[in-house]
Simulated assay, not measured.
Amino acid sequence: MTAKSPNTGAGWLDPADDAPELTDEMMEVAEFRIGDKVIRPATGYLGPNGVVRGRPPSRDRAKQQVTLRLDPDVIEKFRAEGPGWQGRMNEALRKAVGL
């Protein structure tokens, strides 16, 4: 009969061991969910120096959201160039009006 050797593997390491400790400040701005249902939306984000509330500040003047109807082929052309198509469209409009 052969004897079973004991498990000599390194064992299981918890991948969360390197995760930072959650602070009360982080919990104050965190989004809470139960399944797919949002119980409380997030009220900030984690910036380089900790928790920052609200949307990240704009380097320039804040942009304005508008509703604009454009021909489908114009939109398809910009989207075909990949991510950042809205920014490229903004640059094309700036150039068109001489800014």
Rank of each mutant, 00 (worst) to 15 (best):
D24T: 06
G98Y: 07
D14I: 06
V29M: 12
G35S: 07
A19I: 01
P57S: 13
P41V: 00
V29R: 12
Y45D: 01
R55V: 05
P20I: 00
Y45T: 03
E21K: 11
D36S: 09
E25I: 01
R69C: 05
M1G: 13
D18I: 00
P41W: 03
E28F: 04
A92P: 02
D36N: 10
E91Q: 10
I39D: 10
R61H: 02
D36P: 04
L99C: 02
K4N: 06
Y45S: 05
G47M: 03
M1A: 13
W85P: 02
A30V: 00
A19L: 06
K63W: 00
N49T: 04
L93K: 03
M27P: 06
E21I: 09
G50M: 12
V38L: 00
T67A: 12
F32T: 15
S58C: 10
D14C: 06
L93M: 07
S58R: 08
D71R: 08
P20R: 14
L46E: 06
M1R: 07
R40I: 00
G50I: 04
P72N: 09
G9Q: 02
P20D: 11
Y45L: 00
M26A: 11
T43W: 05
L13Y: 01
T43Q: 11
E21W: 11
R88H: 09
L93E: 07
V74T: 13
V51Y: 08
A10K: 14
